[in-house]
Design a protein around this nucleic acid. Sequence first.
DNA 1: TCTGGGGTCCTAGGACCC
DNA 2: TCTGGGGTCCTAGGACCC
Length: 465
Amino acid sequence: MRREASVLHLDLDAFFAAVEQRDKPSLRGRPVVVGGVGGRGVVATASYEARAYGARSAMSTAEARRRCPAGTAFLGGRFAAYRRTSDVVMGLLRELSPLVEPASLDEAYVDLAAGGGHDLSVDGVTALGHALKERITEATGGVSGSVGIGTSKLIAKIGSDLDKPDGLVVVRPGNELDMLHPLPVTRLGGVGPATAERLHQVGVTTVADLAAKSLTDLVALTGRAHGASLYALARAEDDRPIVPDRGVKSVSHEETFERDLTDLDVLGREIDSMAARVGQRLRTSAVSGRTVTLKLRRYDFTTLTRSQTLPQPTDDPRLIATTARRLLADAGTSGGLRLLGVGVSGLSVYAQGDLFSVDDETAEAPDGRTPVDGAAGDLPRLEAPSSATPIPAQPVVTAPAERLWWPGQDVAHDELGAGWVWGRGLSRVTVRFEGPTTAPGPVRTLAADDPALHPADPPDWRPPV
DNA sequence: TCTGGGGTCCTAGGACCC
DNA sequence: TCTGGGGTCCTAGGACCC
């Protein structure tokens, strides 16, 4: 634990829903649910208006529809838009310090002590927190964030959660246990339903209860690593560093089907398309992996994985697919599968053929492989190096016209302009024509195969200069 | 029409090696 | 000729996080 409150945690409020409300003026102040919109979808984010009706993250979308009133917007995710906004926020954090650790699109830790020049007094970091929140709201066009600042990741994270939304909590050094001990154990990271139940059975409900348990008891209850971690966290002992780039360890794609599938040919084609996506993402990150994992979830929700480790790392979609197909044939499909997933792990930076020129320093091992571990900080996160081979275009999947559109999708109409899909069905699609810088716009129902209607990129939320 | 999709980390057993 | 002891790799599963 540090002597000064120099760890900042930022959590953007109802992030996906907030981006939707920013880009869709007619949804501001109204309940919005973002997530899977199919029959088996779950909620990723509910706006605060939707939470008032009981919609929650991880709830089935069907349940959220039951709870929310008519007029609630149920939208599929627009991840390109979320990423763009997230990048803007992460950029602001990096102005504070080079040590920024994104935990997801909407969450990050910042090491203010590594920033240089910050006044790390309680008054100093409080002013910094207020200024940061203001800049975020301004730069994102209205997305707010909650900030916690304290002497460790643990304290900062719990602080950001104490006063949501749009909160700022600075925990004065020395006051950590006062804040921590009254809280339920479930507020500690790593205490999920299973651990909470086990702790509850031995009379532990608050962090203070947890702190009264011996290390031996906690290890017996939850395992070696987990027990040691709980023992320390209950005492506010947390020296986990802020790590700016953790590096990718696996790449996977999975899909829950609208109806359970049994046919091996159909499932084989699903595997092919998932392997293509995984292979493409591996190439984009300039990595390859040796272990191919097939994940399947049966009709009764039992979930299992089967994996095979190859002699050489690969990013080849065909090799990934044939390996996964073999694993599926061995595992069987009896009773029907509700989910299939394909993943690749055991990643290394992999110089493939003449992908890297001879003077490329990253291609150091004789077989062209550099282990990811240890060199993780050098692993490119998103962008492919300019020397990467171009990625072949995905084959275009032709679907029935009414399946092309999904709620929330950005579209453009040749005459009516930019808008987004409100709903679809029966060969019709309903579009609201508005954008982040317009007033709430009109709704039109069009033919789903209207040749003037096209999918579009996310709109720019900044007003024209 | 209960229960997503992308991940990380840990544990445990067996194989294999020295 | 009553069975050691690590260390590492592989596989499978589980818990957890956002």
